[in-house]
């Protein structure tokens, strides 16, 4: 799909509910340590694309990632066959990660909601730079937990201390041994 997601350029809607401006570390850690299967909508076969980076990283951390992209359906990326739509993934999907632009996120969210009972989906996650409050409202009404404008790779790396290895401010202060949000 080759969308360019440009962080910092989110359309600022003054009506946007503030509660999606921030997520606690507890919430993010709870999601990332519970979820095992992720459908990545907007997967790319090009290894320089951010979605490829995120998929590879999440696989390395033990997640089963199902790439979704109607234009690349049937092709392979990182050992997984690309599916055209969420409903065609032949197994459960704990979380859907939307790697498309904010506008496209609405239709994808509706698709996630329509398939949520069949796929057992509990989390709708929109990538860094992607925010659609209408989609979030619909998804929450359908019982999904929604995260917007965050990257699961970056959040995983932040919570496990890896981001600090590159001088990035994790905002984590603790005198306990830091553990990543790995599965139990």
């Amino acid at each position: 799909m080759g969308n360019t997601i440009k962080p910092n350029t989110l359309a600022k809607n003054p009506e946007s509910p503030k509660r999606h401006d921030h997520y606690s570390d507890r919430t993010l850690r709870s999601i990332l340590s519970s979820v095992r299967s992720i459908a990545l909508v907007g997967a790319s076969t090009q290894w320089r694309r951010p979605s490829y980076y995120a998929m590879k990283y999440l696989q390395r951390k033990g997640y089963k990632v199902y790439p979704i992209n109607p234009l690349r359906a049937g092709q392979e990326v990182l050992g997984e066959v690309i599916h055209p739509r969420i409903c065609e993934v032949p197994s459960s999907i704990d979380m859907v990660d939307i790697f498309r632009n904010s506008e496209a996120a609405l239709d994808i969210s509706k698709e996630v909601i329509a398939n949520k009972d069949d796929k057992g989906t509990q989390v709708l996650w929109m990538q860094l730079g992607v925010r659609n409050d209408t989609a979030a409202k619909l998804a929450e009404e359908a019982g999904l937990t929604v995260i917007m404008n965050r990257c699961p790779k970056i959040e995983f790396a932040r919570l496990s201390g890896e981001l600090g290895w590159y001088g990035i401010n994790s905002k984590i202060i603790t005198s306990k041994r830091l553990r990543g949000p790995h599965h139990d």
Binding site: K18, R19, H20, H22, Y23, S24, D25, R26, T27, S30, I31, S33, S34, V35, R36, P90, S91, S92, D94, D118, K119, G120, Q122, V123, T145, K171, I173
Partner: peptide
């Protein structure tokens, strides 16, 4: 029928509406 294990047994907490208290 898809095998659907119950994996989110810890539950997902409600989002905090306020940022974490930052340190001094």
């Amino acid at each position: 029928m898809i095998n659907r294990p119950k994996i989110l047994n810890k539950g997902i907490e409600k989002h905090d509406e306020h940022p974490d208290e930052s340190h001094g």
